[in-house]
Design a protein around this nucleic acid. Structure first.
Length: 660
RNA sequence: GCGCGAGUGGCGGAAUGGUAGACGCGCCAGCUUGAGGUGCUGGUGGGUAACACUGUGGGGGUUCGAAUCCCCCCUCGCGCACCA
């Protein structure tokens, strides 16, 4: 077991400084599930309480103690047998049997207001805040494994307790104002009532005050609980890192000496557990026996292996010093590289790998082996590609090449076996993957890569459409032909020799170039590549129409294309006469001034509706622009007979004439 | 049930308070071609002869102006689920 719960607070609090998707941060918080509340002791009442038994409950709402009307134990709570009165024992036994019969599935599909079941134990507990006697019940909505396995119920302000109280006609006492407890539990904030020394306080203030009261009277204390459980870190499988430990005849566990590392998996004949239920490693009879160098005694190796996480929890650290086999990583390099600046990975890791790795990293931090408290500063989830899948009547998935459509219905080819279709994430097991090798063969790795980036925002995931690759392929072909004649495979003279400035009076082309540079520059940090590719397409479309392209402009274009289509860009770079890789080319700077047109095109609205467009010189004053807008023939017809109440000018964009 | 995210042409998607539909796929037309494909040029939300008009899941609101902000609802995806 690894004591991950000991890090629950830090794993929650340290999320605050991370640049992660908000949904993922939320999922981690929920998974760790920190609840801040109190443990409260309830003494047992009645004649049979000569023994010093008490029930400790955990609650996040100690402020509602005055509204407590009964206490519930989990059916398997150890006190049940002790406190149950004789008359109820049979009913309790029956109920426990019933609960044991319910499947996990049944249990987990239920919600807070699900129908409640339970049995009275016959015992009573005393409410520590007011001395009230409260019946003690058992019910399966209280879980033995969470908190203390016991709760006090305040039906007025908890949905589950409310449903239970209604079922068994238990009293409901309002202690927080704001809802209508005759109809439903009220879980919001409000002033306390019927609560003695808490009356008038809101929830937060009342919590603080009641915890002070409990602690002063030795009746309970503040308590933090986690939904997260400690981590069982062993598996009864072959394929996992073996634990470098062994068990001495007296049962003590020892670690292998450094000189005996690394411990490698032994070869075995069958990767299955043994007949008597031992893990597969128990099959390696000779490997199992090891002599303890200290005592000379024979000992047994551990047969469990580590789970898959053992490697994924620290591989990023090993990547820092991959060729050094003397240390796991070098401290100086760790200092230089850590934390990971950008981690791109699927959201399916949100609560497992990403939590486990953070935990290991914190343990290593406490041991002084890493210098950052968090491993992954920025996290980005790429979306998943989806594609149509086909499943035949027998439930077997089929490849798209195995099916055909007749009269709008899909069949397995040449048969009458119908197929259901669904849009699902691409997966080998769903037979709906597209083999990227085939696309590389037909259209090239650059066209494939470009299309994947062009499909939409990287984090969103979308439907794969193979036909779309044609678009990025066409774009690359067109870019290539700016430079190379398709027929002769020779340099075109559209782009002149190095230094050529022919075509530099083409303002539209220059604007498209600088717009593309600007976009490519900004999107690389944001990982929003799709719009950058659009801008490069605009440039290529413009350049295709141009008769000449200045050499320097072409160089800039090829440079910004390189990160997106490295192979084509590299070849274009060479064709332009370069002898060193484009990787070393300087990233071009864009010029804001070159993004401007010679004239401003101003949209003209009348009362918020677009009615015309006017072109004005860049030097026009606001007043001149508004005058030009009013003078537009089409605009005039909409102003006819109306009075202009307001004139709004949005710099460089539009004029809105509000007229009635 | 709770939490997070998303709904825009035939399709993928642009635009995050200022001309909705950039760019691409598909489709239509013209040129090129013996033909087909490729390539090039133009067109393509709906509606209309043309305008007016209409249009970003639905309803309401704020604003001179809303896909964008606010409120209610619907649908879909992901996660968690009787956690006291």
């Amino acid at each position: 077991m690894l004591k991950i719960t000991a890090y629950g607070d830090r794993l929650t609090d340290d999320l605050d400084g991370l640049n992660w998707p908000v949904g993922t941060l939320e999922m981690q918080r929920n998974w760790i599930g920190r609840s801040i509340g109190a443990n409260v002791d309830f003494k047992l009442a009645g004649s049979n309480d000569s023994r010093d038994h008490k029930i400790t409950v955990f609650t996040t709402r100690p402020d509602t103690l005055f509204g407590g009307t009964y206490v519930v134990l989990a059916p398997d709570h150890p006190l049940v047998d002790t406190i149950a009165v004789a008359a109820q024992r049979e009913a309790i036994a029956t109920y426990r049997a019933q609960v044991a019969n319910r499947s996990d599935r049944e249990r987990t599909e239920e919600a807070a207001d699900a129908p409640k079941t339970g049995v009275f134990t016959g015992a009573y507990a005393i409410n520590p805040v007011n001395g009230a006697q409260m019946p003690v019940w058992i019910a399966d909505y209280v879980l033995g494994g969470y908190g203390t396995g016991a709760v006090f119920a305040c039906p007025a302000h908890d949905e589950r307790d409310y449903a239970f109280a209604k079922t068994f006609a238990l009293p409901i006492i309002e202690v927080v104002q704001g809802g209508n407890v005759a109809e439903a539990a009220y879980t919001g904030d409000g002033a306390h009532v019927n609560s003695g020394f808490l009356d008038g306080l809101n929830v937060d203030a009342a919590k603080t005050k009641v915890i002070e009261f409990l602690e002063a009277g030795m009746l309970g204390e503040k308590s933090i609980r986690f939904r997260l459980r400690d981590w069982l870190f062993s598996r009864q499988r072959y394929w996992g890192e073996p634990f470098p430990t062994y068990e001495m005849p007296d049962g003590t566990i020892k670690c292998l000496a450094d000189s005996a590392l690394p411990l490698e998996l032994p070869a075995i004949d069958e990767y299955k557990p043994t007949r008597d239920g031992q893990p597969p490693l128990a099959r390696a009879k000779e490997w199992l026996d090891v002599r303890d160098p200290d005592t000379g005694l024979m000992a047994k190796r551990e047969t469990n292996t580590m789970p898959q996480w053992a490697g994924s929890c620290w591989y990023y650290l090993r990547f820092i010093s991959p060729t050094n086999d003397q240390v796991a990583w070098e401290p100086a390099e760790e200092k230089y590289w850590m934390p990971v600046d950008l981690y791109v990975g699927g959201s399916e890791h949100a609560t497992l790998h990403l939590l486990y790795a953070r935990f290991w990293h914190k343990v290593l931090f406490d041991a002084g082996l890493v210098t950052t408290k968090e491993p992954f500063q920025r996290l980005f989830h790429q979306g998943m590609l989806h594609r149509q899948s086909f499943k035949d009547e027998g439930g077997k998935y089929r490849y798209d090449t195995e099916v055909e459509q007749r009269d709008g219905i899909w069949y397995v080819k040449g048969t009458d076996i119908k197929c259901a279709t669904a849009l699902e994430k691409m997966s080998k097991s769903k037979y709906n993957v597209v083999n990227p090798d085939e696309i590389c063969d037909s259209d090239g790795a650059d066209a494939l890569r470009l299309y994947e980036l062009f499909m939409g925002p990287l984090e969103e995931g979308t439907e794969w459409e193979t036909a779309g690759v044609a678009g990025t392929r066409r774009f690359l072909d067109r870019a290539w032909r700016l430079l190379v004649d398709a027929e002769t495979n020779e340099r075109t003279n559209k782009v002149g020799a190095a230094g050529s400035t022919a075509g530099s009076d083409n303002k539209d082309l220059e604007r498209a170039l600088h717009a593309a540079i600007k976009k490519c520059t900004s999107v690389i940090d944001d990982l929003r590549f799709n719009t950058a590719i659009s801008e490069m397409m605009v440039f290529v479309n413009e350049a295709t129409k141009a008769t000449a392209i200045p050499y320097g402009w072409m160089e800039m274009f090829v440079t910004i294309l390189a990160p997106f289509a490295p192979h084509v860009a590299e070849e274009m770079w060479q064709r332009m006469g370069h002898t060193t890789s484009i990787t070393y080319a300087t990233w071009p700077a864009f010029d804001e001034a070159k993004l401007l047109k010679d004239v401003l095109t101003i949209a003209v609205q009348v009362s918020g509706k677009l009615r015309g467009q006017v072109e004005v010189p860049l030097t026009a004053t606001d007043a001149e622009i508004i005058a030009a807008a009013k003078a537009d023939a089409k605009v005039k017809t909409f102003l006819e007979g109306k009075e202009i109440k307001r004139e709004i000018y949005v710099k460089g964009k539009l004029v809105n004439l509000v007229a009635v």
